[in-house]
Amino acid sequence: MAWDRNQMAERAAQELEDGMYVNLGIGIPTLVANYVGDKDITLQSENGMLGMGPFPYEGEEDPDLINAGKQTITELARTSYFDSATSFGMIRGGKIAAAILGAMEVAENGDLANWMIPGKLVKGMGGAMDLVAGVGRVIVVMDHTNKHGESKVLKECTLPLTGKGVVDRIITNLGVLDVVDGGLRIVETADGVTEAELRAATEATIIG
Protein backbone atom coordinates (compact mmCIF):
# COMPACT_ATOMS: atom_id res chain seq x y z
CA MET A 1 0.00 0.00 0.00
CA ALA A 2 1.53 3.27 -1.15
CA TRP A 3 5.22 4.16 -1.44
CA ASP A 4 7.54 4.60 1.52
CA ARG A 5 10.25 7.31 1.71
CA ASN A 6 12.78 5.27 -0.22
CA GLN A 7 10.29 4.29 -2.93
CA MET A 8 9.32 7.97 -3.34
CA ALA A 9 13.00 8.84 -3.70
CA GLU A 10 13.48 6.00 -6.20
CA ARG A 11 10.52 7.27 -8.24
CA ALA A 12 11.89 10.83 -8.12
CA ALA A 13 15.26 9.57 -9.38
CA GLN A 14 13.50 8.46 -12.58
CA GLU A 15 12.95 12.16 -13.32
CA LEU A 16 16.68 12.66 -13.74
CA GLU A 17 18.36 12.24 -17.09
CA ASP A 18 21.96 11.65 -18.03
CA GLY A 19 24.01 14.84 -17.97
CA MET A 20 21.67 16.84 -15.71
CA TYR A 21 22.82 19.35 -13.08
CA VAL A 22 20.42 18.96 -10.16
CA ASN A 23 19.78 20.48 -6.73
CA LEU A 24 18.33 18.20 -4.05
CA GLY A 25 16.58 19.60 -0.98
CA ILE A 26 16.72 18.33 2.60
CA GLY A 27 14.80 15.20 3.72
CA ILE A 28 13.42 12.66 1.23
CA PRO A 29 14.98 14.58 -1.73
CA THR A 30 18.45 13.86 -0.29
CA LEU A 31 17.70 10.11 -0.63
CA VAL A 32 17.23 10.56 -4.40
CA ALA A 33 21.03 10.50 -4.78
CA ASN A 34 20.97 6.81 -3.72
CA TYR A 35 18.90 5.85 -6.77
CA VAL A 36 20.52 7.62 -9.76
CA GLY A 37 22.26 4.37 -10.78
CA ASP A 38 24.52 4.70 -13.82
CA LYS A 39 23.14 8.09 -14.85
CA ASP A 40 25.72 10.86 -15.03
CA ILE A 41 24.18 13.38 -12.62
CA THR A 42 26.01 16.38 -11.10
CA LEU A 43 24.60 17.53 -7.77
CA GLN A 44 24.71 21.23 -6.94
CA SER A 45 24.95 22.45 -3.36
CA GLU A 46 23.84 26.09 -3.32
CA ASN A 47 26.46 27.16 -0.78
CA GLY A 48 28.92 26.96 -3.66
CA MET A 49 29.69 23.54 -5.13
CA LEU A 50 28.99 21.41 -8.18
CA GLY A 51 29.77 17.71 -7.95
CA MET A 52 28.77 16.94 -4.37
CA GLY A 53 30.13 13.62 -3.10
CA PRO A 54 28.95 11.33 -0.25
CA PHE A 55 29.51 11.86 3.48
CA PRO A 56 33.18 11.49 4.52
CA TYR A 57 34.57 8.52 6.43
CA GLU A 58 34.86 9.11 10.14
CA GLY A 59 38.00 11.12 10.86
CA GLU A 60 38.07 12.66 7.37
CA GLU A 61 35.52 15.43 7.97
CA ASP A 62 36.66 18.82 6.65
CA PRO A 63 35.08 21.93 8.24
CA ASP A 64 35.65 23.78 4.94
CA LEU A 65 33.55 21.25 3.02
CA ILE A 66 29.84 21.20 3.81
CA ASN A 67 26.56 21.04 1.92
CA ALA A 68 23.61 23.46 2.11
CA GLY A 69 22.29 21.52 5.13
CA LYS A 70 25.64 22.29 6.86
CA GLN A 71 26.55 18.58 6.82
CA THR A 72 30.14 17.49 6.17
CA ILE A 73 30.50 16.02 2.67
CA THR A 74 33.24 15.10 0.18
CA GLU A 75 34.33 16.22 -3.28
CA LEU A 76 34.54 14.22 -6.50
CA ALA A 77 36.93 14.33 -9.46
CA ARG A 78 34.46 16.62 -11.27
CA THR A 79 33.91 19.02 -8.36
CA SER A 80 34.11 22.80 -8.72
CA TYR A 81 33.71 25.47 -6.04
CA PHE A 82 32.42 29.02 -6.40
CA ASP A 83 30.99 31.88 -4.35
CA SER A 84 27.34 32.35 -3.35
CA ALA A 85 26.64 35.05 -5.97
CA THR A 86 27.91 32.75 -8.74
CA SER A 87 25.97 29.83 -7.25
CA PHE A 88 22.67 31.69 -7.35
CA GLY A 89 23.59 33.11 -10.74
CA MET A 90 23.49 29.59 -12.14
CA ILE A 91 20.26 28.87 -10.23
CA ARG A 92 18.48 32.09 -11.23
CA GLY A 93 19.90 31.83 -14.74
CA GLY A 94 18.18 28.51 -15.37
CA LYS A 95 21.40 26.51 -15.69
CA ILE A 96 20.27 23.95 -13.08
CA ALA A 97 17.98 21.49 -14.88
CA ALA A 98 15.88 20.49 -11.88
CA ALA A 99 15.33 20.92 -8.17
CA ILE A 100 13.74 18.18 -6.08
CA LEU A 101 12.29 19.65 -2.89
CA GLY A 102 10.03 18.86 0.03
CA ALA A 103 6.87 20.88 0.67
CA MET A 104 4.24 21.68 3.28
CA GLU A 105 1.57 22.47 0.65
CA VAL A 106 1.27 22.51 -3.13
CA ALA A 107 -1.66 24.04 -5.02
CA GLU A 108 -3.20 23.01 -8.33
CA ASN A 109 -1.78 26.14 -10.01
CA GLY A 110 1.77 25.15 -9.01
CA ASP A 111 2.01 27.42 -5.96
CA LEU A 112 4.44 26.05 -3.39
CA ALA A 113 4.61 26.66 0.37
CA ASN A 114 7.54 25.17 2.27
CA TRP A 115 9.21 27.87 4.36
CA MET A 116 6.99 29.24 7.06
CA ILE A 117 4.03 28.46 9.30
CA PRO A 118 2.54 31.65 10.79
CA GLY A 119 2.67 31.62 14.58
CA LYS A 120 5.49 29.08 14.63
CA LEU A 121 9.21 29.81 14.72
CA VAL A 122 10.36 31.14 11.38
CA LYS A 123 13.86 30.07 10.44
CA GLY A 124 13.97 31.59 6.96
CA MET A 125 13.66 30.58 3.33
CA GLY A 126 17.38 30.01 2.74
CA GLY A 127 17.81 29.38 -0.98
CA ALA A 128 14.37 27.84 -1.62
CA MET A 129 12.76 30.94 -3.18
CA ASP A 130 15.68 31.39 -5.57
CA LEU A 131 15.66 27.72 -6.53
CA VAL A 132 11.96 27.47 -7.34
CA ALA A 133 12.04 30.74 -9.30
CA GLY A 134 15.11 29.83 -11.30
CA VAL A 135 15.65 26.15 -12.06
CA GLY A 136 14.32 24.45 -15.19
CA ARG A 137 11.96 22.04 -13.48
CA VAL A 138 10.63 21.93 -9.91
CA ILE A 139 9.69 18.48 -8.60
CA VAL A 140 8.08 18.24 -5.16
CA VAL A 141 8.43 15.06 -3.13
CA MET A 142 6.23 14.88 -0.03
CA ASP A 143 3.58 12.87 1.82
CA HIS A 144 0.19 13.31 0.19
CA THR A 145 -1.54 14.16 3.48
CA ASN A 146 -0.51 15.74 6.78
CA LYS A 147 -0.52 13.99 10.13
CA HIS A 148 -4.25 14.77 10.52
CA GLY A 149 -4.94 12.98 7.22
CA GLU A 150 -5.72 16.23 5.38
CA SER A 151 -4.61 16.74 1.78
CA LYS A 152 -1.41 18.73 1.23
CA VAL A 153 -2.31 18.92 -2.48
CA LEU A 154 -4.74 21.83 -2.42
CA LYS A 155 -6.89 24.12 -4.56
CA GLU A 156 -5.03 27.03 -2.96
CA CYS A 157 -2.15 27.15 -0.51
CA THR A 158 -3.06 28.42 2.97
CA LEU A 159 0.55 29.02 4.09
CA PRO A 160 2.82 31.87 2.91
CA LEU A 161 4.24 31.00 -0.51
CA THR A 162 7.79 30.10 -1.44
CA GLY A 163 6.96 30.55 -5.11
CA LYS A 164 3.92 31.27 -7.28
CA GLY A 165 3.08 28.81 -10.07
CA VAL A 166 6.50 27.17 -9.86
CA VAL A 167 5.84 23.43 -9.36
CA ASP A 168 5.93 21.12 -12.41
CA ARG A 169 5.45 17.67 -10.88
CA ILE A 170 4.37 16.30 -7.49
CA ILE A 171 5.53 12.88 -6.28
CA THR A 172 3.80 11.65 -3.12
CA ASN A 173 3.38 8.37 -1.30
CA LEU A 174 0.17 7.89 -3.32
CA GLY A 175 1.37 8.68 -6.84
CA VAL A 176 2.60 11.22 -9.36
CA LEU A 177 0.71 14.33 -10.50
CA ASP A 178 1.59 17.01 -13.05
CA VAL A 179 0.55 20.65 -12.84
CA VAL A 180 -1.31 21.44 -16.07
CA ASP A 181 -3.75 24.11 -17.28
CA GLY A 182 -6.86 23.98 -15.09
CA GLY A 183 -5.53 21.65 -12.39
CA LEU A 184 -3.56 18.47 -11.87
CA ARG A 185 -3.24 15.44 -14.11
CA ILE A 186 -2.55 11.98 -12.73
CA VAL A 187 0.63 10.54 -14.22
CA GLU A 188 0.61 7.31 -12.24
CA THR A 189 -0.54 5.84 -8.95
CA ALA A 190 1.76 4.26 -6.36
CA ASP A 191 1.92 0.49 -5.96
CA GLY A 192 -1.33 -0.76 -4.46
CA VAL A 193 -3.07 2.63 -4.71
CA THR A 194 -6.13 3.01 -6.94
CA GLU A 195 -6.92 6.15 -8.90
CA ALA A 196 -10.08 6.52 -6.80
CA GLU A 197 -8.00 6.48 -3.60
CA LEU A 198 -5.61 9.08 -5.00
CA ARG A 199 -8.53 11.32 -6.01
CA ALA A 200 -10.21 10.91 -2.62
CA ALA A 201 -7.02 11.99 -0.82
CA THR A 202 -6.58 15.07 -3.03
CA GLU A 203 -8.35 18.41 -2.44
CA ALA A 204 -7.02 19.95 -5.66
CA THR A 205 -8.88 19.71 -8.97
CA ILE A 206 -7.84 16.64 -10.93
CA ILE A 207 -8.40 16.93 -14.66
CA GLY A 208 -9.61 14.04 -16.79
Binding site: S87, F88, G89, R92, D111, M129, D130, A133, G134, L161
Partner: peptide, 26 residues
Protein backbone atom coordinates in the same frame (compact mmCIF):
# COMPACT_ATOMS: atom_id res chain seq x y z
CA UNK B 1 16.27 34.93 -0.12
CA UNK B 2 19.81 33.56 -0.13
CA UNK B 3 20.55 34.33 -3.77
CA UNK B 4 19.03 37.79 -3.45
CA UNK B 5 21.27 38.53 -0.45
CA UNK B 6 24.38 37.34 -2.32
CA UNK B 7 23.46 39.40 -5.38
CA UNK B 8 22.66 42.48 -3.28
CA UNK B 9 26.22 42.32 -1.96
CA UNK B 10 27.79 41.63 -5.37
CA UNK B 11 25.74 44.43 -6.96
CA UNK B 12 26.46 46.92 -4.17
CA UNK B 13 30.17 46.30 -4.60
CA UNK B 14 29.90 46.61 -8.36
CA UNK B 15 28.26 50.02 -8.60
CA UNK B 16 24.80 48.56 -9.27
CA UNK B 17 22.23 50.19 -6.96
CA UNK B 18 19.41 47.79 -7.86
CA UNK B 19 18.55 44.78 -9.98
CA UNK B 20 15.44 42.87 -11.02
CA UNK B 21 14.90 39.25 -10.01
CA UNK B 22 12.15 36.64 -10.32
CA UNK B 23 12.98 35.34 -6.85
CA UNK B 24 10.15 36.01 -4.42
CA UNK B 25 7.56 37.25 -6.93
CA UNK B 26 4.10 36.47 -5.52
Amino acid sequence: PQGTLAERMRAGGSGIPGFYTKTGVG
